[in-house]
């Protein structure tokens, strides 16, 4: 957000110190999210089929409308189209890409809802809603969302 300097406070000798909150959380996935992560490890993208027939990616464990259990997983992608995007000029150290990149919501082929990813692109000008993209898989995959290293535009479809 924007850091406007509108106030200058005389802090005096108020004590301050770094506080680091860090933990390697271990999350149990349950079968649906587990299957999604298994798929990432195997370079396969899956979504879950909702009661209204929509395919949701990442798979929802429960129907977003009725709340009922969802049980059917289907393969989607790996390519898809950008449904919206945002250009980051100054990536954060925690972001997957060091150079300016685009956040994208990408609707995979066969899916009805888009998922979030980071798109590697040389400039903002080549990114557009509707452009086709594909995942670039990490060399070492372990069943983690980071198994998708990032996304790239499909050649010849730079909007």
């Amino acid at each position: 957000m924007c850091d406007a300097v509108t106030d200058q406070t005389e802090v005096g000798e108020i004590l301050s110190a770094p506080l680091i909150i860090e933990y390697p959380f271990k999350r149990t996935t349950g079968p649906i999210i587990g299957a999604f992560l298994t798929g990432l490890r195997e370079q396969v993208l899956v979504g879950s089929k909702a009661e209204d027939g929509r395919v949701i990616v990442p798979p929802a464990e429960f129907d977003p409308v009725s709340g009922n259990d969802l049980t059917e997983l289907v393969e989607v992608g790996p390519e898809g189209v950008i449904t919206t995007w945002a250009w980051v000029t100054e990536p954060h150290a925690k972001h997957a890409l060091d150079d300016p990149f685009a956040w994208i919501l990408v609707k995979l082929d066969g899916a009805d809802t888009p998922m979030l990813g980071a798109l590697k692109a040389p400039t903002m000008d080549v990114v557009a809603t509707g452009a086709r993209v594909k995942p670039v898989w990490a060399d070492e995959r372990e069943g983690h969302i980071d198994d998708i290293a990032h996304w790239v535009l499909v050649e010849g479809d730079a909007a």
């Binding site: 680091i20 909150i21 999350r27 996935t29 983690h144």
Partner: peptide, 11 residues
């Protein structure tokens, strides 16, 4: 199948 995942986080 994957059953758990580590998601380390530091703030």
């Amino acid at each position: 199948p994957v059953r758990s995942v580590r998601t380390p986080a530091q703030l």
